[in-house]
Write a protein that binds this DNA or RNA. Structure first.
Length: 535
RNA sequence: GUCCCCUUCGUCUAGCGGUUAGGACUCGGGAUUUUCAUUCCCGCAACAGGGGUUCGAUUCCCCUAGGGGACGCCA
C-alpha cells in the first residue's frame, strides 16, 4: 500500500481552538500510526480575513501541542509551497485547463444579482442553486464581456444537471441529476444529488481559488492519501469529488469525524469552548494532558485505555475507531459563564469558569504526577514566578527548599497554574485563618497550650538546615511530646499539626514542617499559642 | 425550507443479533493514610419514543421526536 499522507489545513483567520486542534491531532496521530507523513498547509486564500498574526498564533499553538509536521511552512518539503497564497499560479494553470475542456466556464453574474436571486429562492422556500445563467455563453459573448471590463468568476460545470431554455434549473427533476457517492471511513457511504449542488464557483473574481477547488488541487498535488476533517466538510465533499473526477484524479480516502460541541450541545463557538488553545497552556495544562483529553473526544482506544502518552496514542490511534456522534467539550461551566465571552477574558477569570472536577483536570493531574521530577520543576517554574510569592533569587531548579515544596505539592495539582494556591503558605508571613481552628476540638482542648509549648521547645533546639528542618527529627519530637504528656494518637498529632501550621490539613507533618523551616514553624507555634491564650 | 448526519449512565465512551449492557470522570459509602489529598474496594446512574424484521434486538429497517451540520466570490 502506498504511503499514508495526512494534512492539517488551517486558515489563518483566528486562533486555533479545540475543534481545529483535535482535527490536527487526529491527522498527526493517524500519520504516525501508519508510519506516514503529516503535512501542514496554510489556507490563506481569503484575503480579507487572513492575517499574519493569526498565522503565527496557529503555528505557535501547533508547536506547543507538539505536532511535528514533516512538510509545511518553516520546514519545507517536495510539494511546496505550503501556503495557498503562494500557489496562485498553480490554481490558475489548472482552472484554465478546466475552462479549455469546457468543464468550467466564466460567469459574469454580479454578487448583487446572485444575492437577489438567492433571497427569492429562499422566499419561495427553495434551496439556492445557481441558475446557470452564464453556463452557455458563447465564446463571442465571453470575449465581449471581458472586453467591457466585467469582472468574472469561474464556475465548475456540474455534470448531469437539468437546465431549461431560460437557464433555470429544476432540482430533483427525474433524470436530471447524478449521484455522487462518498465512501467515508467514519460516516460510511453517503450519497448526494448533483441537482442540489449546481455550478459552483472555483475561482473568485479576485482571481483567488475558492476553497472547494484549491483544496482538491492541493490535496492531489501534495499526494494526500487521507483527508481527515470535521463533518462540517462532508457536504462540500461531493463538490470536491466532482473536481477530482473532472481532472481524472484519484479521490483520497475520506474520514469526516464528529464535530465537538460545547456544554450546551451547540457547535463550539467563542462563547463556550472555542477558547484559544494557548489559554489552556497559560492555565497550566500540559500539552501531554491536553492531547490525551482531546484524543478521547470522539475516539477510544481498542483496549479501553484512557490515560495514554502521546507515544501510545501514536501506535493505537485509528480513524476507523472514531465516533460519528458529536463529543462534548465539557470543561467550562457555561451556566456560570453566561453573558461572558470566554475567548476574551483573562486567564485568571477563565479559570473561575472551569469545572474543578472535569475529566480534563483528572487527566491533567495524572500527567503531572507522571512527569519526571526535573521536567516537572522546569515546567512549573514559570508559574511559580508568575505568583510573585517566591523571591526571585530562590526561584530556580537549584533551590532545594523550593523544589522540595513543589515536588511535595505536585499530587494536589490539576494544573501547573494551581501552584499559586499553595505557595503563599510557605513563603508569605503566617496569617492564621480563624475558620481553620476556632471550632476544632483540638484547639479547644485544654492540653493544646502545653503540647504546643513542649513542641516549640524541642523545635527550638533543632538545627536549621538551610531553611529546612530535618523531617526525622520532627517525627522524634512529636513522639517525645506525646510521651512526656501522656497523649498519643490522633489527639497528639492533630493538636501539633494545628499548633504548628494553623490548619487541620496538609502535607504529611514532618515533611510539611521540614519544608516550612525552623523560623516559620516557631512563628506559627507562637502565634497559635497566643491565639489560644486569648480565646 | 432542502439535503446530510447524530441519539448507550450527568460527561467521555465500549458494544458491531443472545452480555447481570462494560470501563473512565463526577457523585455517594467504606478501607488504608494518626490530617487533607493520594491509593484501594463497594455503590448510584444509560440503550430517546413507536413500529417492524427475527426464535431473539442496544445492535438491522422504517416512522416520530430531539439535536447538530451544510446549503457563500468563508474556509
Amino acid at each position: 500500500m502506498s504511503e499514508v499522507r495526512t494534512r492539517f489545513a488551517p486558515s489563518p483567520t483566528g486562533y486555533l481552538h479545540v475543534g481545529g486542534a483535535r482535527t490536527a491531532l487526529f491527522n498527526y496521530l493517524y500519520a504516525r500510526a501508519q508510519k506516514g507523513k503529516f503535512i501542514l498547509r496554510i489556507e490563506d486564500t481569503d484575503q480579507a480575513r487572513s492575517t499574519e498574526q493569526s498565522y503565527h498564533q496557529v503555528i505557535d499553538s501547533l508547536k506547543w501541542l507538539g505536532y511535528e509536521w514533516d512538510e509545511g511552512p518553516e520546514v519545507g518539503g517536495p510539494h511546496g509551497p505550503y501556503k495557498q497564497s503562494e500557489r496562485l499560479h498553480i490554481f490558475k494553470e489548472y482552472s484554465e485547463k478546466l475552462v479549455a475542456e469546457k468543464k468550467a466556464y466564466p460567469c459574469f453574474c454580479s454578487a448583487d444579482e446572485l444575492e437577489r436571486k438567492k433571497k427569492q429562492r429562499e422566499a419561495m422556500g427553495l434551496p439556492y442553486v445557481y441558475d446557470g445563467k452564464c453556463r452557455n455563453l458563447s465564446a463571442e459573448e465571453v470575449a465581449e464581456k471581458k472586453a467591457q471590463g466585467h469582472e468574472h468568476t469561474i464556475r465548475f460545470r456540474t455534470p448531469a444537471v437539468a437546465t431549461d431554455g431560460q437557464g433555470t434549473r429544476e432540482p430533483g427533476r427525474a433524470g436530471a441529476s447524478k449521484e455522487v457517492v462518498v465512501e467515508d471511513i467514519v460516516q460510511g457511504t453517503v450519497r448526494f444529488d448533483t441537482a442540489l449542488i449546481g455550478d459552483f464557483i472555483i475561482v473568485k473574481s479576485d482571481g483567488f481559488a475558492s476553497y472547494n477547488y484549491a483544496v482538491v488541487v492541493d490535496d492531489h498535488l501534495m499526494k494526500i492519501s487521507h483527508v481527515i476533517r470535521g463533518v462540517g466538510h462532508l457536504s462540500n465533499t461531493p463538490r470536491q469529488v466532482l473536481i477530482y473526477e473532472a481532472f481524472g484524479w484519484q479521490v483520497p480516502h475520506w474520514a469526516h469525524v464528529s464535530e465537538i460541541v460545547g456544554s450546551d450541545h451547540k457547535k463550539l463557538s467563542k462563547r463556550h469552548g472555542a477558547t484559544p488553545i494557548t489559554a489552556f497552556r497559560d492555565l497550566g495544562y500540559t500539552a501531554r494532558a491536553f492531547n490525551n483529553y482531546m484524543a478521547l473526544l470522539g475516539w477510544s482506544s481498542p483496549d479501553g485505555r484512557e490515560y495514554m502518552t502521546i507515544d501510545e496514542q501514536k501506535t493505537l490511534f485509528d480513524v476507523a475507531r472514531c465516533s460519528k456522534s458529536p463529543a462534548m467539550f465539557d470543561v467550562f461551566d457555561l451556566a456560570k459563564a453566561a453573558e461572558v465571552d470566554l475567548a476574551q477574558v483573562s486567564i485568571g477569570e477563565l479559570e473561575t469558569y472551569l469545572f474543578p472536577k472535569s475529566k480534563l483536570n483528572w487527566l491533567s493531574n495524572q500527567h503531572i504526577r507522571a512527569t519526571n521530577d526535573a521536567q516537572f520543576i522546569e515546567e512549573i517554574l514559570p508559574f511559580v514566578r508568575a505568583t510573585a510569592v517566591v523571591p526571585e533569587a530562590e526561584c530556580n531548579a537549584q533551590n532545594a527548599r523550593l523544589t522540595g515544596i513543589l515536588l511535595s505539592l505536585r499530587v494536589y495539582l490539576d494544573t501547573l497554574g494551581q501552584i499559586k494556591n499553595y505557595l503563599a503558605d510557605f513563603y508569605l508571613p503566617f496569617a492564621p485563618q480563624k475558620q481553620n481552628y476556632v471550632s476544632s476540638e483540638y484547639f479547644n482542648d485544654e492540653k493544646f497550650s502545653s503540647l504546643a509549648a513542649a513542641f516549640k521547645r524541642l523545635i527550638e533546639q533543632m538545627g536549621d538546615n538551610g531553611d529546612t528542618l530535618n523531617a526525622e527529627a520532627i517525627k522524634d519530637a512529636v513522639n517525645q511530646v506525646g510521651k512526656e504528656a501522656g497523649v498519643k494518637g490522633k489527639p497528639l498529632f492533630m493538636t501539633l499539626r494545628l499548633a504548628s501550621t494553623g490548619r487541620l490539613e496538609g502535607l504529611e507533618l514532618p515533611v510539611y514542617l521540614g519544608l516550612l523551616g525552623k523560623a516559620r514553624v516557631l512563628d506559627r507555634l507562637e502565634k497559635m499559642i497566643s491565639l489560644k491564650a486569648a480565646s
